[in-house]
Amino acid sequence: MVRRLAEIVPTLIGVSIVVFMIVRMVPGDPARLVAGVEASEADVMNIRRQLGLTDSLPQQYVRFLHGALTGDFGRSLKNRQPILAIIAQQSPYTMQLAAASLMVALSIGLSTGVVAAIKRGTVFDTGSMVFALLGVSLPSFWLGLMMIFLFAVTLRWLPTSGAGTFLHLIMPAITLGTGSAGIIARMTRASLLEVLGQDFVRTAVAKGLRRRAVIVKHALRNAMIPTITVVGVQFGTLLAGSVVTETVFAWPGAGRMLVDSVAFRDYPLIQATILLFALIFMLTNLLVDVSYAFLDPRLRYD
């Protein structure tokens, strides 16, 4: 466990180097963007110096790493605010949205998958899988806009966009969670079908256990491991997918901020946000690994 945690550190350093290099390889000059379209070359040069962009790349990286280790990511090139403060303000919204859409994905995905598996070959099965396919394939901005027009403009049940109350969270969470729900449903169905055909399930049925108990206690628990793996990966997808959803619903999370900062070549903000996303992703997968042990006591981590 401790070793797994310790592995995170070198991975993060690796991520930081890759991100650092990529943002600088992409053409585009933040100093020119800060200076504005009408600025003279001398002004741009002056701003470049102020922003520390005239230093050599290793110098810049060391400064970034030193800052990151001491918890000081510097200031945004765009609005000169401390990056930690910006992230502290926006990342709770991203986490809230990711968690809520994960709940949506899990509750819809698991129930659809289980129904499809136990009603295999029936109209329920086909219906569930069509739903799952739709969930995976619908573009989230289209789904989001359609929901806005149905639930906000026509029915007036929900606010169109923004954040603040639980009601604001509903449409973004459904929009973002639907794609993952489809994938989780298909995975649950497949692995549950596989488990249902195994000997221990037949034994459980044979010894007179009720069907419900067999499915919930025996089959589902064993079918969960591949599903949980998918959930771990999907959490990353949810973080990435939040970019579109946050834009459609004006959700003030880190995803939209990341897109804005890429457009502005706001190097320090891009670096810090990506590092944060990487950290969240790694911690999620650590959690997934830990849950394997919980689901299957034979697995142990030393």
Binding site: L145, I148, V153, T160, S161, T247, V248
Partner: peptide, 14 residues
């Protein structure tokens, strides 16, 4: 701030 044009128009409607 409502970045998406369609969502912003919807907000005017509601």
């Amino acid at each position: 701030v409502i970045p998406e044009d369609g969502a912003r128009a919807a907000a005017l409607e509601t």
